[in-house]
Every structure is written in C-alpha cells, then in structure tokens.
C-alpha cells in the first residue's frame, strides 16, 4: 500500500512537472528532499532522546504502569488482543495523554515505544497487526484538548477568544475517532475473514 502510494506520488508529480515544462522545479525537489529530511530528523532527535530518558525513569519507577491503570479499562476494550498489564498499555496511554495536551514532541517517542512493544506481540514481523492499526487510527485522529499551535496563531492575529477553537476541535476529533474505530473494526473483520 505504502509502496503504491509512493510510486503514485512520484510518477504523477514528475509527469505533471515534465509535461508542463517545469523540469527545474522537479530538479530542485529531488535535490532538496534529503536536506529537508535531515533537518527534520535533527530537530526531532534531541527532543526525542530527552523524552525517552524521562520516560525510562517513569517506566523503571513504575509510574508509567500506574498512569496507564487510569484509562486501562477503556484501552482493554479497544485493544482486546493485548494481554492485560502488558507494558504496551503504559506507552499507549502516555502517547494518548501527551497528544491530548498538545505535546506532539513528547507523543512521538511514546508512540514509537508503543509500536515496538506491539511488534513484540506480533506473530508476523513484516505485517501490521490489528492492534497496531487501531493504535495508528487513534493517533491520526489528533484527539486534542489544547491545540497549542492554532491557539497561538489565533492570538497573534488578535482573536476575540483564541482558545474557543479547542471546543469544536475536541468535539469533531472525538466524533471522527469513534468513526475511525468502528471503521477499523469493520475493515479488520473483512480482512481476516
């Protein structure tokens, strides 16, 4: 799937640029992607290491486990395949909580740790497991209580009530999350038939 998407993006984009005579744009994009990726990764790397360090303290001290107990009854329902008290729940709940408070930088390493521990439970290491896809859908719905970037941008333009935006965002992302989880169930039933 990713394979087809990637080929599609490149072939369609390149053909369109070549046919409209904008080969120079194509050249610039080919040359600049590497630099853009490196810059992105260099920004992520130190923050991610920092959060992985903090999280390791939380994990070794047992705090992560305690936090995950708060929302674990709900998570057990969403992820029936993961054994109860498995470490994956700690990472999943930390990831969800950080996303909800608009801490994208902290959420990514938690999410990656969650994926790693789901991979340990996965029978076929090259195929995505059902719980992995469910976890991914929760992430792509962007459930967020405080959308920090948008609120600050609204403040910058002198909005009358900058943080108001959090209310419709939360309602709509919650509705789309429910939809996503239902869709995920339907697709997984059909796939595993």
């Amino acid at each position: 799937m990713i394979n087809k998407l990637w080929v599609g993006l490149i072939v369609i984009g390149s053909l369109c640029l070549l046919l409209t005579g904008k080969a120079d744009v194509l050249n610039a994009q080919i040359l600049s992607s590497g630099k853009a990726t490196l810059e992105l990764v260099m920004q992520i790397f130190p923050l991610m290491s920092l959060w992985l360090g903090i999280m390791n303290i939380a994990r070794e001290s047992g705090l992560l486990f305690k936090v995950s107990k708060f929302i674990s009854p709900l998570l057990h329902k969403i992820f029936p395949e993961i054994p109860k008290n498995h470490e994956a729940f700690g990472f999943i709940s930390s990831n969800i909580l950080s996303n909800m408070f608009g801490l994208g930088n902290a959420a990514t390493p938690f999410g990656l740790k969650a994926m790693e521990s789901l991979q340990k439970l996965n029978n076929n290491k090259e195929d995505a497991s059902r719980s992995m896809i469910t976890f991914l859908i929760i992430n792509t719905c962007g459930l967020c209580v405080i959308p920090t970037t948008i609120i600050s941008l609204r403040m910058l333009y002198d909005s009358k009530d900058a943080s108001f935006i959090a209310v419709p965002c939360l309602i709509i992302s919650f509705i789309s999350l429910i939809f996503g989880l239902i869709l995920d169930r339907i697709f997984s039933r059909r796939y595993h038939k």
């Binding site: 799937m1 990713i2 998407l5 990656l112 090259e126 995505a128 719905c141 967020c144 789309s176 997984s188």
Partner: peptide
C-alpha cells in the same frame, strides 16, 4: 486541529519498526 498528518504517522510508525504490509491502515 481535528486530525493529524495521517500519511506521515503511518510512514513513521510502521517504517521505524520495519512493518512492510500495512493492510487496510491507509
């Protein structure tokens, strides 16, 4: 504000742990 960069999240999470077949995720 109500969604996230779906394509990148899929690439990042599945790419990092070495998943090749993403099934119906996209």
């Amino acid at each position: 504000g109500s969604s996230d960069t779906t394509i990148y999240i899929i690439t990042l999470y599945f790419g990092t742990i070495g998943i090749k077949k993403i099934k119906y995720a996209l």
